[in-house]
């Protein structure tokens, strides 16, 4: 079971024409005037897991240069390091975040021993704790402007059972209420032994509440087309059938950590828009491209998300 609305989109059909008429199409670099006053980008997640929680702030630019080894920005990247960031809840708790002055883990190649703070990361300074059902407000003040977002944490995701029969990574089954709108996001990282940080992916290199900010796949689902019993959901991109020679790893990960986050509708729409964007052909076979929706005020890009998390660890079977 995959994400229906994604695979039903006509997006990629456009590529058909590239192939059909490949004798007569050209791809070329083109100069487009970049926006001279690009917006600020805020990325913040609060969960019901134990803190601290992290916020990442940067400014959009014309063209970022990316380090091809660790996929971190290497040039033309503008981190915002001097913002005032405040997280508060509806119980009167408030937390002024501080720059996260930790160096990047040495396992991240070529990270040039920079600190997270230099990349624009902030961390909660008190023991503020997320809980399902509560409302949170994030405020970012920078250069005289205030950006604010509100998020209410949805209820905890259902219990998951796993099916190890056919695929390397286990398929997920769970019961979920049909009568209300629910949205979920899945994250995972496979690793060696018992330590989730002992893995080959970038998301293995970061601690618990930080790695979701580095997980590159947005597996978001709506329950609109699901029955009450969701069975054998395949959340991996990609997954492989067991018993086939795996050429991608010599020494293969033994376990996988899976996280199921309950997300709000606006969070679903945000990630869905990012997913659609990676496939957008400029608005021919798909809609006019548009910036993703945001829950921040004052023209900031990005999302402040509050999620309740169900985490599970399972073996990988080859």
């Amino acid at each position: 079971m995959k994400n229906l609305s994604n695979t039903y989109s006509k997006t990629i059909i456009g590529l058909f024409y590239i192939i059909l008429f490949s004798g007569c199409f050209t791809q070329e670099e083109l100069d487009v005037e970049f926006d001279t006053n690009p917006p600020i980008v805020i990325h913040a997640v609060i969960t019901d897991q134990a803190g601290p929680y992290y916020v990442h702030i940067s400014r959009a630019v014309g063209e970022v240069t990316v380090n091809p080894v660790n996929f971190l920005p290497s040039a033309n990247y503008i981190p915002i390091t001097d913002a005032t960031v405040t997280l508060s809840d509806d119980q009167g708790n408030s937390d002024v975040l501080v720059p996260y002055d930790q160096e990047f883990p040495s396992t991240v190649p070529q990270s040039e021993t920079r600190t997270f703070a230099q990349y624009g990361f902030y961390r909660t300074s008190t023991n503020i704790q997320g809980a399902a059902g509560r409302a949170y407000t994030l405020t970012v003040q920078h250069e005289g402007k205030t950006y604010e977002a509100k998020a209410t944490m949805p209820s905890t995701p259902p219990a998951i059972t796993l099916n190890h029969e056919k695929f390397i990574y286990p398929l997920l089954s769970f019961n979920q209420p049909v009568l209300e709108e629910n949205y979920y996001m899945f994250l995972y990282r496979d690793f060696f032994g018992d330590d989730p940080s002992n893995g080959l992916n970038i998301q293995n290199q970061f601690e618990d509440n930080l790695w979701p900010l580095f997980f590159p796949i947005f597996q978001v689902y709506t329950d609109q087309f699901w029955t009450e019993q969701v069975k054998d959901l395949d959340i991996y991109a990609p997954n492989y059938e067991q018993g086939q020679p795996i050429v991608f790893c010599v020494d293969c990960p033994e376990n996988i950590q899976i996280q199921m986050h309950s997300i709000s509708r606006e969070a679903y729409e945000f990630y869905d828009a990012l997913n659609q964007q990676t496939r957008n052909d400029g608005g021919t076979f798909n809609p006019e491209p548009a910036p993703p929706p945001t829950n921040f005020t004052n023209g900031a890009l990005g999302l402040f998300r509050a999620s309740s998390v169900r985490s599970i660890t399972a073996p990988v079977r080859y």
Binding site: F34, S58, A60, G62, F71, Y77, L301, G302
Partner: peptide, 13 residues
């Protein structure tokens, strides 16, 4: 007309 860094990836605005 520009791009932004999000979850270690680049997206357009």
């Amino acid at each position: 007309v520009g791009e932004f860094f999000y979850n270690n990836q680049l997206f357009n605005f």
